[in-house]
Design a protein around this nucleic acid. Structure first.
Lengths: 357, 357
DNA sequence: TTGTACGCGTTATCAA
DNA sequence: TTGATAACGCGTACAA
């Protein structure tokens, strides 16, 4: 029984109880158990268990500067993409004996600043940053102070830090190539308001570039707000203007959701008008005839972020050049980009598709 | 310019720079700014800004025992329900100037133990626990040591702690009442493997009780593993046995997803066989004709958890009796429980429904 | 192999 | 209003 009613047992108390010195107890809990005599080990172990002793990480961090804490700044924690990446980050942390201090900013630059200060005040050993705004100056300072940090998904041009994320140009290429191969000729690129977010900018730009390069391809780009009727309006207008076969390319998961709603509201059948979304979501196979997506390797991205941080941590001293780690997406082909599929069966049963000319 | 190339400025350095004492600087950053002369305030503020000083929370926590950290143990961070609740927790934390240390256990009791130890080693001031297994003993110890903790969603009978979550009995009642009112007579209650998880047990039991009480209602209960073909098998068998009108009641969001897949694979139209899920999900309005759900007030649940912790923190001393805070769900009525709806249009356009007898 | 003594950055206590 | 000093719990030279 831990007995102590309201406080925590300390190293010193364990030492007393075990009739040993602070140093020995410290060693016992710092992976130097081997260097103690078997007898001492038993005494300390016993005493610690009896008092319910747990080393105080705060005190540990204070002395050695090793907080064993990693900070993660997330722009929108309710985004499944963010959570999936975070899961990868967390696993990688666990494998290294690190804990994760998570801060969600809800895409608010003010909160971003606050949380950044907060994270550093806990002396995190590294920072995974999925930025909302552009707290470039603050980050620059942190980087200069020698704090390892890696930019996740969204990055800031002015900040020359390590970056991990999707190969956005490749993703757009794959999307366009697939739609093109399926016979779609008139493309609508749909994004959340582009603003400062780099992935949106990059996908957007790549789309424009491809349109410019290939005269056979027609297209438009729009970034309406996702709440309200704007999306339906934009899609409706596009479809009224565009010749067929026409398709929608959604820049991320949120857009895919909004676009699917819009198409349904307009009474349009998926596939007849193509739909391809960047980001894979649980339900993409469920909406008949299934929504084609480009899945990001979220776990790998998360792990890569931590790995990069670790590299900086190990390297502390010499200045490695900033490194960019880009991952390719995976195409999940479903009915929404099958021009000839007018059937409503779920994707995994499309072999039973009945033609409805 | 923060100048210092690689370390953090300390209180002492600020004091020297400002020609003040440590105490004064400490006061300046501890909300006792008023008690300093305007001149001193200016000097300290200046010096701090110049050196880029940030109080070290680790050291703070060491001295006063105030880590300003709350710990949250999450059973499955990829579950949208968990994330939504976490969002509420996080907001409530922010309002109180607390930070959140999140630990995901992936439903693994071993990791649960580890993470629990980790969280306490950072001297979190309180713990929000969405337990995977039953680390009852560990938790009991923590509670006895005076650490405020609140059980979220899942609770452990043996542990007499504060609890926050959904009113599960009410939820099942509402589900059955709705299905019953819509004309469904033969019910299949579908759950993830019940095991130790208390919400599953409670929902399961309430379902059984209602069946026993009302002879007019027929029903079965199953808890197949969600991966693989088991769900489709169970649903198929049930539908082969049961008379109509028949309906499925899904015990949580994961089950709803699996059940929807199964019904699609079986080529069954929603509504014709009823489908009602506990937990609201992004896509429930998207799968024609929309899936009826019981939404949990996730934000409120998260906030309530922190609020409860706060109460314990404030009260420290006298022993308040354990408190249970249960929230009612909200019914989102959609096409999947509309017996007469054979139309495939999205929910928000059901007024245009064409009858297809 | 084990113990002593000091320092980490902060707050609390007390005195000026 | 300000300042000196002693903790807080732990790691780590260094000495034994």
């Amino acid at each position: 029984m831990p007995a102590r009613s309201s406080r925590h047992a300390t190293l010193l108390e364990v030492a007393r109880e075990a009739n040993a010195s602070k140093t020995s107890v410290s060693r016992y809990f710092s992976g130097e158990r081997e260097r103690l005599s078997p007898a001492l080990q038993r005494r300390i172990g016993e005493a610690a268990r009896q008092l319910g002793y747990r080393p105080n990480q705060m005190a540990r961090g204070l002395k050695g500067g090793r907080s064993r804490l990693l900070g993660m700044l997330v722009a929108d924690i309710r985004n499944p993409y963010s959570v999936a990446v975070m899961h990868g980050v967390e696993q990688a942390c666990r494998e290294r004996g690190l804990s994760l201090l998570v801060a969600n900013t809800d895409n608010d630059p003010a909160q971003e600043r606050t949380h950044l200060a907060l994270l550093t005040s806990y002396r995190v050993e590294g920072l995974v940053i999925n930025a909302a705004g552009s707290p470039t100056h603050e980050l620059q300072d942190l980087a200069e102070q020698g704090l390892p940090l890696v930019l996740l998904d969204r990055w800031l041009e002015e900040l020359d830090a390590d970056r991990v994320g999707l190969d956005n140009a490749l993703a757009v290429d794959m999307a366009i190539d697939h739609l093109s191969a399926q016979g779609y000729r008139h493309l609508l690129f749909l994004s959340e308001p582009v603003g400062q977010a780099s992935p949106r900018q990059q996908r957007w730009q790549r789309f424009e570039q491809r349109l410019a390069d290939e005269p056979a391809l027609n297209g438009e780009r729009h970034d309406p707000p996702l709440d309200g009727e704007a999306v339906q309006q934009v899609v409706g207008d596009f479809l009224a203007r565009a010749n067929r076969p026409a398709a929608l390319l959604c820049a991320n998961g949120n857009v895919t959701l909004a676009a699917t709603r819009a198409l349904q509201a307009l009474g349009i059948r998926l596939g007849e008008v193509g739909l391809l979304g960047i980001d894979e979501l649980d339900w993409c196979g469920l909406v008949p005839p299934g929504i084609t997506t480009l899945a990001q390797p979220t776990e790998a991205i998360g792990r890569a972020a931590v790995q990069q941080l670790q590299a900086r941590l190990d390297d502390s001293g010499s200045t490695l050049p900033p490194r960019r780690t880009l991952f390719p997406p995976t195409l999940n082909e479903r009915g929404s980009t099958r021009l000839t599929t007018f059937d409503k069966a779920p994707d995994n049963h499309s072999e039973n598709a009945k033609e409805t000319p």
